[in-house]
């Protein structure tokens, strides 16, 4: 095994699927370094990506090593050791998220086994020993662990979480989550279930994007408290803007997003520069982290990067326009 990089091979993929894989890997390598994942044709690569809907694909899957991680594009769930099924059609962003999680886990494993000191970004899961305090942390934990779970509490509609494909499934309406927001969390039960069970139990139920629910829960449950294991002194940056038109927002979030999208900055520094209350900053950060748009600095030279300094000559008219539209 090449310690410096993980190797990944696409096998029996359709043309579009191969492109999706290539783009996802390119995005990851832009973010983490060009050698973070190396695409090659070696069927013995640590990560195998294949389409198992054909006889040929099915045969390849059966012959693959148990120790390889197999990402299987398929319309039906494939079971077996180290197999992750992604329903077709697979989207770039979904594949990218799955690949990042797998790569982080594999690198952590390699480092622990080989004592290799190469600096890699640590997996961003919540510490296992940390007590889950609210529904937000519970959902995030399931997502980061790539698991499926059934969440229930006496008298409340059950909810199903598909942490692999980022789906939130509920008996009645996605607003069911509201009922869990202010509960004594000791009364909530979370039970891991298989992907097959999830699909069987949740047939014909309303589905929502898990990220959308996580955003909502983060704002409702964070109460100014940073996620366990995160620091207000770590420089962070947004990798994209939150989808404010469909997610809840407060006016200050636009300012936070504008600043965090152009530079690495710690939450403490944000608070100092903007005078926005730390609670708002923390709630926004937790929500942004939960929907995968936070990047922490790994290369310190990036800290010097800042966006272009905007001319202040238009500030007066911008302020007046914001007031006029009632959006300041």
């Amino acid at each position: 095994m090449h310690i410096g990089a993980l190797h990944i091979s696409g096998v029996n993929l359709q043309e579009v699927e191969q492109k999706v894989l290539d783009v996802a890997v390119n995005i990851i390598c832009d973010e983490k370094g060009k050698d973070y994942l190396i695409v090659d044709d070696n069927p013995g690569s640590e990560i195998l990506v294949l389409n198992a809907d054909s006889a040929e694909g099915s045969k390849i899957l059966n012959n693959a090593s148990e120790n390889q991680v197999k990402i299987v594009f398929s319309s039906s769930t494939q079971s077996g050791k180290n197999i992750i099924t992604m329903p077709t059609p697979v989207r770039v962003i979904a594949l990218k998220n799955v690949l990042i999680k797998i790569a982080e886990q594999l690198y952590a494993y390699i480092i622990s086994k080989k004592g290799h000191l190469k600096a890699v970004k640590k997996p961003t899961v919540l510490p296992e020993a940390q007590k889950i305090e609210n529904i937000f942390q519970q959902l995030l934990q399931i997502k980061l662990a790539n698991k499926c779970s059934l969440i229930s509490s006496t008298g409340l509609p059950s909810i199903y979480i598909d942490g692999v494909n980022g789906r939130f499934i509920t008996e009645k309406s996605t607003d069911d989550i509201e009922k869990y927001l202010n509960l004594d969390f000791n009364s909530v039960e979370s039970k891991e279930i298989s992907y097959e069970q999830l699909n069987e139990y949740s047939k014909n139920m309303p589905v929502a994007a898990l990220n959308s629910i996580l955003w909502r829960c983060a704002l409702a449950c964070s109460n100014g408290k940073l996620l366990p294991g995160h620091s207000e002194n770590t420089p962070v940056k947004l990798t994209s803007w939150p989808n404010f038109s469909r997610h809840g927002f407060k006016p200050d979030y636009f300012k936070l997003a504008a600043i965090m999208a152009k530079q690495y900055i710690s939450l403490m520094e944000l608070n100092r520069q903007t005078q926005i209350p730390f609670k708002e900053i923390t709630d926004f950060y937790n929500a942004a982290f939960a929907v995968d748009i936070i990047e922490t600095v790994t290369d310190k030279s990036k800290l010097k990067k800042t966006g272009p300094i905007k001319s202040s000559q238009n500030k007066s008219i911008l302020k007046k326009l914001a007031q006029r539209l009632g959006i300041n």
């Binding site: 404010f244 636009f254 300012k255 504008a258 600043i259 238009n314 500030k315 326009l321 539209l325 959006i327």
Partner: peptide, 9 residues
């Protein structure tokens, strides 16, 4: 609102 935030920051 987002445009104004970008222009002002």
């Amino acid at each position: 609102q987002a445009l104004l935030a970008i222009l002002a920051n």
